[in-house]
């Protein structure tokens, strides 16, 4: 199939950026979306133009490195799918596809579709851990964990930190990302001692980074490749309020 691509090109953080239109021919339906961009880049390179910069690494939907807004939807319209796992069979011959970077002030564009997500790391630094130095751990069976708590913690822990939640949120909020970690650790007995202080510190860091506030629109969950549920945010709020009392 043949496609028209409209891709955001921006030469660096200071550049204003613009949409540039490209044609790609002979796209196979079995290609992944990123492979389609590889083909475009190969052609641009040989034509002496700069290839489109985009982040990617594992290409199997787990590292969280890739991410672009495709036709206005973070990671494209396929649900529960990262950009690297999106395949071209979901597009039709003649389609026009618009590709933009994540848009959020705490995710400044580095180049083209590449953004800086180090704000996420700083949120984790603020408290997204259990303070247990290596070697200090008791035997793994010393504290049983109810299966449903372990399973629910796992569901929250599957967050890949891609940032689609922020990209999709009309408020540019990072609540789902932050809540996923607060929920994961807060559901486990090992996470209890730091539970309230963790939520408080992480939420405050999230606000300090310049993310917007949550209005529970649910856009984040809808695009989340791992389907982190919205009630994680309620858990985070509960822990936060407890810490603020």
């Amino acid at each position: 199939m043949n496609l028209t691509l409209k891709i955001w090109r921006q030469n660096g953080p200071e550049d204003r950026g613009r949409m540039v239109t490209y044609q790609v021919e002979d796209v196979s339906p079995d290609m992944s979306f990123l492979e389609m961009l590889d083909v475009l880049n190969e052609r641009l390179t040989l034509a002496g133009e700069e290839p489109v910069a985009f982040d990617h690494d594992c290409r199997e939907g787990i590292c969280g490195m890739c991410g672009m807004v495709i036709n206005g939807v973070a990671h494209g319209e396929q649900r529960a799918t990262t950009t690297c796992q999106l395949h071209m069979r979901h597009f039709k011959d003649g389609d026009t596809v618009t590709i933009e970077p994540w848009r959020a002030a705490p995710f400044p564009v580095i180049k083209d579709l590449v953004v800086d997500r180090s704000s996420f790391d700083r949120i984790i630094q603020a408290g997204g851990f259990i303070s247990v130095p290596t070697g200090a751990a008791p035997d793994a069976h010393s504290v049983p964990v109810p299966k449903d708590a372990a399973d629910a913690a796992f569901d929250a822990a599957t967050c890949i930190g891609c940032g689609a939640c922020v990209a999709a949120c009309p408020n540019g909020s990072a609540s789902l990302f932050t809540a996923a970690k607060v929920t994961h650790l807060g559901l486990l007995p090992q996470g209890q001692p730091e539970r309230a202080s963790r939520a408080k510190a992480m939420v405050e860091q999230m606000d300090a980074e310049g993310f917007g506030g949550c209005t529970n629109t649910g856009e984040c969950t809808a695009v989340c490749p791992k389907g982190i549920p919205l009630d994680a945010i309620a858990r985070m709020n509960a822990d936060y309020l407890k810490a603020s009392k």
């Binding site: 409209k6 949409m19 807004v69 036709n71 206005g72 939807v73 933009e100 649910g218 856009e219």
Partner: peptide
């Protein structure tokens, strides 16, 4: 965003 798509939720 240049394209403001019908919301996902």
């Amino acid at each position: 965003y240049a394209v403001r798509r019908r919301s996902q939720a």
